[in-house]
Design a protein around this nucleic acid. Structure first.
Lengths: 221, 221
DNA sequence: TTTATATTAAAACGTACGTTTGTTTTTAAT
DNA sequence: ATTAAAAACAAACGTACGTTTTAATATAAA
């Protein structure tokens, strides 16, 4: 009963006898639901957002919503997946991972990550808050992906430490802290409104790098 | 209707004709409710914890619960207050604020803050997640207190910057980041289990200080 | 004792919610 | 045009919740 319902995994628009055209429409519609629902989750919280709210926001009939999602929590799962896909895709598409010079590489990947997390700051906050709702199995897969994201930074940092470009006593710890700091604006925006986007990005980049690169403040560019 | 119910503010055991003895009992009982309820909120989340759950956990009859709290959300508000009182009290009781030497002062207050936040890590995570539930007015007062806590760090940092002991480009930003980093373990414990408490505290202290004190790694003690 | 209050148990209230059902309308292939 | 699947809809179902109430019992103060 508890294990047969991870709809995300076995029902993302496959196994239904839909032609490609119909699949497209189906996915568009599902994406609309997720998008509108996420906005509501951000504004009111998951538990405080009813399926009727989502029905109103999407102009999709309450009963009909269940043609596109199996259950309410699926919406949240799909949103989590979409967010992680966003992050991963950017890292793969960019050839940042191929930059040789450790400092340049770290700076590039950090800056990009800061910009992304800044742009999705509201969704990020929502995800921090609503993690509890996720089914255990799905949460584990999300944390695994997040762990891999951190390992990516760990690798970059470790390489920089070897070449004496960086100085940290524990690359794994440093990577965890760095990724955590990426959500700084999300979780603390209530007290950071006085900074413009650019001011924030510059200050955040500087602050984060200082923990990894010795005398990072003196290095131009 | 929405504004008449901030029970916390006008009903914390005053305005009831109770003798001191009764007040003590009343507060003890209320504290028990908050403590047990918080545990449930931590484990299952606020929305997923029913008043019946709390009744069972405290062995206080469901109806009788309402002699000690006005409504469910009051429990959360009291928990938030208790947490902030804990933090503030420690800072006032300790004479850390009187330490002259900026480095020593920052190190002392940081270390203590890290230890405290580590010890209440579960409550802290719960508060990050359930902030949304708080009534607007109460949330504002909480954020105000939090802001004052950050200003305290800002003052320490600014003083250190003046005396060239610290190097940060924006003390306010640095203070915000520092306080944010205090919740590192709370929000990321799922990936930090490999560290002992002491390992974590040392690494966290070192990492945080590096962003403020130039070549903090070379300074013994 | 008397009197007021605290506590318990149990039931009920009203409501809001996630989900399902039964039926009708639309769509698309034959 | 026929037909079968898919989409849309209104209504209902069942339940779980926060909160209140009622009545009976216990406790402590006067």
């Amino acid at each position: 009963m508890t294990d047969t319902n991870h709809s995300i995994h076995n029902r993302d628009s496959s196994e239904k006898k839909l032609n490609p055209r119909q699949q497209k429409v189906f996915q568009k519609r599902q994406a609309l639901i997720v998008k509108k629902a996420s906005k509501l989750f951000i504004k009111k919280g998951y538990a405080q957002t009813s399926m009727r709210d989502i029905s109103n926001a999407t102009d999709i009939n309450l009963g009909n919503l269940y043609h596109y999602i199996g259950r309410k929590e699926d919406i949240l799962c799909i949103a989590f997946n979409a967010y992680h896909k966003l992050i991963i895709d950017f890292l793969v598409k960019n050839d940042i991972l191929n930059i040789e010079e450790p400092k340049a590489q770290l700076k590039a990947v950090l800056r990009q990550s800061l910009e992304i997390t800044y742009s999705v700051r509201n969704d990020l906050l929502m995800m921090y808050r609503e993690t509890r709702v996720l089914p255990r199995k799905f949460l584990k897969s999300i944390l695994k992906k997040e762990g891999e994201f951190i390992e990516l930074f760990e690798g970059i940092i470790a390489r920089g430490v070897e070449s004496k470009a960086f100085k940290v006593s524990d690359p794994f710890f440093a990577a965890n802290m760095l990724v955590f700091q990426l959500s700084f604006y999300s979780l603390r925006s209530w007290n950071l409104k006085q900074f413009t986007r650019e001011e924030f990005l510059d200050l955040a980049e500087e602050t984060i790098l200082k923990a990894i690169i010795p005398d990072a403040m003196c290095s131009g560019t």
